[in-house]
């Protein structure tokens, strides 16, 4: 059974979510603030498969929680809940290492579906079978791997296998890399990345994407400052080149 940690200081919301996740056949736990959440999540063998994280928490906020988790190399999938739903907040969340987001008020069905999406990836990553997920028909998502220039992106495990090391990506880093690889050789605009990868349909400050690109370059480029695969197309966006000349 998958275990989900709900980090939410509003007691009513937390209890309502717990009831629903348990009705879905998941195990749910509640942490009332960021400190308690970190206490539960930081140990490597915490047994938690996904986190539903509110941003506005007393004490350290949701962004900070994710940042600390990722710094401690904890890659548990995180679904963020924001009250304001402003693009800045969402992008800040992704920058911190959040995997998916929903703005409040959310649709219960969508929350459950997104959470299942995150759990599915997590289960693939740990090699378990996804048969416990009743609501999702098996095989809706193909296991995918992309190979380029001696590097392998494994979307099932969210791993990037390089010559002599393996990098663990967050869901969104992997999605962005996949989007770029799929459009190999073509120029991909920042706006289309926002729409296709993040599902954001607003005109917004797109620097968060640049931060992602910087991170990806650190993984896949030999010299991140002189990229060969992930090229910047001035004024438009980015271009992925699999085999640089």
């Amino acid at each position: 059974m998958s275990r989900v940690l709900i980090v939410e200081d509003e007691e009513h919301l937390a209890l309502g979510l717990k009831f629903n996740l348990e009705a879905e056949g998941l195990e749910a736990e509640i942490a009332g603030d960021g400190e308690n959440a970190l206490k539960l999540l930081l140990p490597a063998d915490n047994g938690i498969d996904a986190v539903v994280l509110d941003v506005m928490l007393p004490g350290i906020n949701g962004f900070e929680v994710v940042t600390q988790l990722r710094n401690a190399k904890q890659y548990v999938p995180v679904l963020m809940l924001t009250a304001r739903g402003r693009p800045e907040d969402v992008l800040r969340g992704f920058e911190a290492g959040v995997d998916d987001y929903l703005s409040k008020p959310f649709e219960l069905a969508i929350l459950v579906a997104r959470l299942r999406g995150l759990l599915r990836r997590k289960q693939w990553a740990s090699g378990a079978h996804p048969q416990t997920l009743s609501a999702v028909p098996a095989g809706t998502e193909q296991q995918e791997t992309f190979a380029f220039d001696g590097k392998i992106l494994d979307l099932a495990t969210l791993e990037l296998r390089l010559k002599d090391e393996t990098v663990q990506l967050t869901v969104m880093e992997a999605e962005l890399l996949r989007h770029l690889i799929r459009n190999e050789g073509k120029v991909v605009s920042r706006k289309s990345i926002l729409e296709d990868v993040w599902d954001l349909r607003e005109d917004t400050d797109t620097r968060a994407i640049d931060n992602f690109i910087v991170r990806l370059r650190r993984y896949i480029e030999d010299v991140p400052a002189k990229p060969k695969h992930l090229l910047t197309v001035r004024g438009v966006g980015y271009k992925f080149v699999a085999q640089p000349k």
């Binding site: 009513h12 919301l13 309502g16 629903n20 009705a23 506005m56 009250a83 008020p105 959310f106």
Partner: peptide, 25 residues
């Protein structure tokens, strides 16, 4: 705006969550 958004949206989120729960379970 910050305070009121939070104070308005939180109870609405909660009420909707419970209504949808009652509706679907």
């Amino acid at each position: 705006l910050h305070a009121v958004t939070h104070e308005l949206k939180t109870p609405i989120t909660s009420i909707r969550l419970y209504l949808q729960t009652l509706q679907s379970r």
